[in-house]
Design a protein around this nucleic acid. Structure first.
Length: 336
DNA sequence: CGACTTTGACCAGCGC
DNA sequence: GCGCTGGTCAAAGTCG
């Protein structure tokens, strides 16, 4: 496992998803996981290091680079950046609409991914009465009936693989663990977290790689509907995490905010020179993978979009974002 | 005492 | 229909 690398995955909300190519607990293929062990030693959180303070994932996602994350195919005409843009956006939209990719699809609503939830919330009074009765009857079972005729629709998911000693990485949001399950073919359990903010429906799953326990796979589902409280963990077992680990928000925002932070970085370190998102040199510096096979993955993923930062890419050598993230010592080791 | 974790049980979806 | 698995619930326990 190389240091200074990060892997990421995007999944749609309807079992159609975008996995890490070939991800499988039994055959872990990645040599690309961001190593946060150094970051964790820092007093700064990952978001602070990245300069992501108030970034709304997905919504703020630059269209040009959203395609990079999702893995849009190359345009027929490389000079037609407009079509590139459209294709890329369309693909993102298709994912979020949880529909089969159609080249010309263009409408989207983030709320659409919550349709199932809304439907569930708009039960008829009669149904509610029935359910209340059932609840009373099932007092001992203490479980709410969740029957719906509609297939449960899921929020889009984004997964990250991070090399970290701690499972739950601090990201500025507050999470409450609500479950833990043993994972098949893995000796490590999967933990389920939910954002503690009342109206916020964001969840995240945390599990460790079967082959490399040092790698934490964090999957985010949904979008925060509130600003980051930026609170420190109360518990001592999270204190180590707060020592600068990344996490939830990191991962939540990282996928969609990489381009933005590239932009910010360029501004900060390159004398405010505009960062040309269409600059092919810059784009080519990202080793991008798009796997339509998705033979194996987390949570029944069929397709995959995978953003992969490699060491030694022009991205890094050009003092890109990763250099800002990866400790200089690590980079020195790279050069040797 | 509030916030959070742990844990076993339950439910729903899926494949066979 | 059955069994497996992922996901969720909520009581009990823990911690500051």
């Amino acid at each position: 496992m190389e240091k200074g690398e990060m892997a990421m995955k995007i999944e749609d909300g309807n079992n159609g998803s975008y996995s890490f190519p070939g991800y499988n607990p039994n055959s872990y293929p990645f040599s690309s996981v961001f190593d946060f062990s150094e970051v964790e030693k820092s007093s700064l959180g990952f978001m602070e290091i990245l300069g992501m303070q108030d970034f709304n994932p997905l919504l703020d996602f630059p269209q040009e680079l959203s395609s990079m994350v999702v893995g849009s195919p190359a345009p027929k005409d490389p000079t037609d950046q407009g079509s590139v843009k459209k294709n890329c956006v369309d693909e993102v939209l298709n994912y979020q609409q949880q529909q089969p990719a159609t080249p010309n699809s263009s409408s989207i609503s983030l709320a659409s991914s919550e349709g199932g939830i809304n439907d569930e919330q708009t039960k008829t009074t009669a149904n509610q009465q029935v359910e209340d009765d059932e609840q009373q009857q099932n007092t001992k079972k203490h479980l709410k009936p969740k029957k719906t005729n509609q297939k449960k629709q899921r929020e889009p998911r984004i997964a990250f693989m991070t090399k970290s000693k701690v499972d739950h990485l601090e990201d500025g949001y507050r999470w409450r663990k609500y479950g833990q399950k043993a994972v098949k073919n893995s000796s490590f359990p999967r933990s389920y977290y939910r954002c503690t903010s009342a109206p916020c429906n964001v969840k995240k799953l945390i599990e460790r790689s079967f082959n490399d326990p040092s790698i934490v796979v964090t999957t985010y589902e949904g979008q925060h509907t509130h600003p980051s409280p930026l609170v420190m963990p109360r518990r001592t077992n999270l204190a180590g995490v707060s020592g600068g680990a990344i996490s939830a928000r990191c991962a939540t925002t990282f996928a969609s905010s990489i381009p933005r932070n590239l932009y910010q970085y360029q501004h900060a370190y390159h004398q405010q020179q505009p960062f040309d998102l269409n600059n092919t040199n810059t784009l080519s510096s990202l080793n991008f993978h798009y796997n339509h096979n998705g033979s194996s993955s987390i949570s029944r993923m069929s397709n995959s979009a995978f953003l992969h930062f490699n060491q030694g890419t022009t991205f890094l050598s050009d003092h890109g974002l990763l250099q800002d993230i990866v400790p200089s010592q690590m980079l020195k080791e790279e050069q040797h």
